[in-house]
Design a binder for these strands. Structure first.
Lengths: 226, 226
DNA sequence: CAATCATTCAAGAGAATACTTGAATGGTCA
DNA sequence: TGACCATTCAAGTATTCTCTTGAATGATTG
């Protein structure tokens, strides 16, 4: 009986560890992070994460074996997506724990953002209030495809690469708040730098769509699964 | 610059993966689960998890390297504890994700509990309501030490091993609800079986102290860190 | 001061993992 | 039908993990 008990526990924790193992590789975490922005093909994921296609495919299959992602054939592509929005929350929780417990995370990101001349995002709470009150123009600077998959309700879409050309679409008399994929993404940093150079009052919001949603914010389209 | 960006991402996800790697071994998850019940010495952890002391020590150091646990010298023992209650929540989230996504978890646990003659815990919501309303005697059947570290507010402590001898301490006219370390722990199952054999109306509650707390329930002592 | 005890360290065997390369699969589109 | 394309498979290598064993550490206790 005591033996049966041990076998039971071993079997149980082994199952739990399947999820843990899936989260144990940096590359897979990067893939999950990307998938939090929306579904993607293998090739797209491989490019964004600087992986060989074969390697990306392998990691994706690992994630699929742990049931964290699902694959669906779409034309001649295979589209991967998170199996569940809980997976995105788990990623955010893990990231949060790392941020909270590992001083190295802040060192690394501080060094990088400083080198890119990013200002500290001051007054995050105040910023959030103004966004929620609709006092500012909220700008989504991610690729259009990600905007289409899900974006913060009321946000305007101008991918950072097109911003220079489309800057006139922004009302000149209102402050702009730009967001992208979250605190470690530089797209909004670049966007803000550009907008300021053009004389606009611009700020960066560090939240991703998923984080916004996790805090009870509205997103569009309403049914977006993540 | 694109190279700097890649280096930044690599460094970042590598840090995140430190946490993931710590969660990737079944044994370590078992240790974390135990530590969710309260601080423990290396030897105690090794015994409970059926590990050699050296192996347990090694895993604990891995966990410590990821800053998930902390060690403190206590007399001639070393006491390990969770570094943060967030760690416990992370464990519960991971377990929840596994339960939710991996059918194997339910299969394994159903088989084991069935073999032990455990009844399905029916009416969990109703049970919870009655516990919260104080309509039942709430019984903590874990070892006294764990009760001391933290327990649900108002619970009585009778470790399952002492239950037979101390059964008279329970009011005979009220239902008893027993809990232990959570849904996969059998102590409450055994306690309920014993109590029923003695003619008491007894039920099992599947929540652990940490889960109770996570749902906004009160615990004692108030300052308990987990 | 020596003995004891809990814990950690060190080294080694075996298993699992990550990435690469090149071929195979199984669609789609001309 | 045949060429092409995205993806997966298979095999090989280098690396990293896990667990064991036996010794070392370092504090407490008689």
């Amino acid at each position: 009986m005591t033996t049966a008990h041990r076998q039971f526990k071993d079997a149980l924790y082994e199952q739990f560890a399947r999820v843990g193992k899936a989260l144990a590789a940096p590359r897979r975490l990067e893939l999950l992070d990307l998938l939090c922005q929306g579904p993607r093909t293998v090739e797209a994921l491989a490019n964004e994460a600087s992986l060989s296609v074969a390697n990306a495919s392998q990691h994706l299959q690992t994630l699929r074996a742990a049931r964290l992602v699902e694959a669906e054939k779409k034309g001649s592509y295979v589209e991967y997506r998170l199996a569940d929005e809980e997976v995105c929350r788990m990623f955010l929780a893990l990231r949060g724990l790392a941020e909270h417990r590992l001083a190295e995370v802040e060192q690394v990101s501080r060094a990088y953002f400083a080198s890119r001349g990013a200002m500290e995002p001051v007054g995050a709470e105040e910023l959030l209030r103004r966004v929620k009150a609709g006092e500012v123009t909220l700008l989504d600077v991610r690729p259009a495809e990600e905007y289409r998959a899900a974006h913060i309700a009321g946000a305007l879409s101008i991918p950072v690469g097109e911003l220079k050309a489309r800057i006139r679409e922004l009302p000149a008399d209102r402050d702009v708040v730009a967001y992208c994929r979250g605190p470690y993404c530089v797209m909004a940093v670049e966007a803000v730098a550009l907008l300021r150079k053009r004389g606009l009052r611009a700020h960066r919001m560090e939240l991703s769509v998923a984080e916004w949603r996790a805090r009870g914010g509205r997103i569009e389209p309403k049914g977006a699964a993540r």
